[in-house]
Computed example of a mutant assay.
Amino acid sequence: MTFPKDTTTYSIGDQITVNGMPLKIEGFLARSSPHVMAKWFRGRLGEPMVETKLENALILGKAQEGYFITIRMVPAGVGTNGTLTVSNLKAAYDSRDVTKTALSRLLDRLPAGSKIGTVMMSADGGKLSKYYALSNNHGEEVNRNHILDLMRDEGMSLQFQAATEEERLASRTLKILKNGKTLFFRGKKKEAVAVIGRTSEGPTIVQVNVISEEEIKK
């Protein structure tokens, strides 16, 4: 996808996969307004196109030959700050069995009844990152023990644990969490952070982010 001449673009991660969907995300800053940029994209991508407004953001969507293109734009002064995301629908469909198997293996290692909301993997700057968020009705200690076992199986040990203030937990999630725990792990060429807390409705939320410095296979 090309951009107008007055636009500056930048890559957001080399490779990103969210819930089995490969994504290519590119950020852009333009001197033109979102209205002008939207007109330009409509001319480039053609019809039919989905158009949505969410608060101050203008979002355009277009299906195109096994891909789905999403353009999100917000005003930035007199210009535009935006992202262009290309979702590889065909690749996600072709790898659906592999994705399902990997998800089942992860669930088998978590407390019974756990539900995984998001699994995101990215490769950038020679590092691999894996993030996942889950919820269940077990207590914080049960979840902590499962995460300890999970990290141990991945070659990492607990370095230290800290109480997490409610405000910090809330900044990491979409739901307000009661005071919880943050666990820090480290292993050979990898490290991880796990945040465990409870929502005001009762369920426990666990978020894990693992970063590996192992070389990425091309």
Rank of each mutant, 00 (worst) to 15 (best):
residue 205 I to N: 11
residue 43 G to K: 01
residue 78 V to A: 09
residue 147 I to V: 13
residue 152 R to A: 14
residue 79 G to Q: 03
residue 193 V to A: 11
residue 8 T to W: 05
residue 68 F to E: 14
residue 116 I to P: 09
residue 209 N to L: 13
residue 217 K to Y: 09
residue 97 D to Q: 13
residue 34 P to K: 01
residue 202 G to W: 08
residue 2 T to H: 15
residue 65 E to H: 04
residue 36 V to F: 03
residue 132 Y to A: 00
residue 39 K to W: 04
residue 70 T to L: 00
residue 186 R to P: 02
residue 115 K to G: 09
residue 97 D to V: 09
residue 156 M to C: 06
residue 202 G to H: 08
residue 217 K to E: 11
residue 145 N to Q: 15
residue 71 I to K: 11
residue 161 Q to P: 02
residue 115 K to F: 12
residue 62 K to Y: 05
residue 123 A to W: 00
residue 193 V to H: 07
residue 76 A to S: 14
residue 126 G to N: 08
residue 194 A to S: 09
residue 59 I to N: 00
residue 7 T to H: 11
residue 88 N to P: 11
residue 81 N to C: 08
residue 180 G to D: 03
residue 184 F to C: 07
residue 25 I to P: 03
residue 124 D to T: 12
residue 77 G to N: 05
residue 208 V to R: 07
residue 140 E to T: 07
residue 85 T to M: 09
residue 105 R to Y: 03
residue 30 A to G: 03
residue 47 E to D: 11
residue 189 K to I: 12
residue 140 E to C: 03
residue 133 A to G: 13
residue 90 K to W: 01
residue 165 E to M: 13
residue 162 A to E: 04
residue 209 N to T: 14
residue 15 Q to R: 15
residue 62 K to V: 02
residue 119 V to K: 06
residue 184 F to G: 06
residue 17 T to Y: 04
residue 137 N to C: 01
residue 133 A to S: 15
residue 101 T to A: 14
residue 89 L to Q: 08
residue 156 M to S: 04
residue 180 G to A: 05
residue 149 D to E: 13
residue 31 R to N: 14
residue 140 E to Y: 03
residue 196 I to D: 10
residue 66 G to L: 09
residue 218 K to G: 08
residue 76 A to H: 12
residue 44 R to D: 05
residue 48 P to R: 09
residue 206 V to T: 14
residue 104 S to D: 15
residue 166 E to N: 11
residue 215 E to W: 02
residue 138 H to P: 12
residue 132 Y to T: 04
residue 126 G to P: 05
residue 150 L to D: 06
residue 178 K to N: 13
residue 113 G to D: 10
residue 91 A to S: 13
residue 28 F to I: 01
residue 136 N to H: 00
residue 177 L to M: 15
residue 180 G to S: 04
residue 130 K to R: 11
residue 97 D to T: 12
residue 187 G to S: 06
residue 169 L to T: 10
residue 168 R to T: 12
residue 161 Q to K: 10
residue 33 S to H: 01
residue 25 I to D: 04
residue 76 A to Q: 14
residue 160 F to S: 06
residue 110 L to P: 00
residue 1 M to F: 00
residue 179 N to G: 15
residue 140 E to D: 06
residue 196 I to R: 14
residue 127 K to Q: 15
residue 202 G to I: 05
residue 183 L to I: 13
residue 206 V to W: 06
residue 203 P to Y: 13
residue 12 I to L: 13
residue 64 Q to A: 01
residue 198 R to V: 08
residue 38 A to K: 15
residue 79 G to H: 02
residue 122 S to I: 02
residue 40 W to K: 00
residue 179 N to W: 04
residue 176 I to A: 04
residue 82 G to I: 03
residue 80 T to C: 01
residue 177 L to T: 09
residue 60 L to N: 02
residue 53 K to C: 01
residue 193 V to K: 15
residue 37 M to S: 09
residue 3 F to W: 05
residue 182 T to K: 11
residue 174 L to R: 10
residue 127 K to I: 08
residue 8 T to E: 15
residue 215 E to D: 08
residue 129 S to W: 02
residue 23 L to S: 02
residue 78 V to Q: 10
residue 165 E to P: 12
residue 124 D to F: 06
residue 126 G to M: 10
residue 19 N to W: 15
residue 12 I to N: 04
residue 45 L to E: 02
residue 152 R to S: 14
residue 213 E to M: 00
residue 156 M to N: 03
residue 21 M to R: 05
residue 92 A to D: 07
residue 148 L to E: 10
residue 54 L to Q: 05
residue 65 E to F: 03
residue 158 L to C: 02
residue 103 L to C: 06
residue 91 A to P: 06
residue 63 A to N: 09
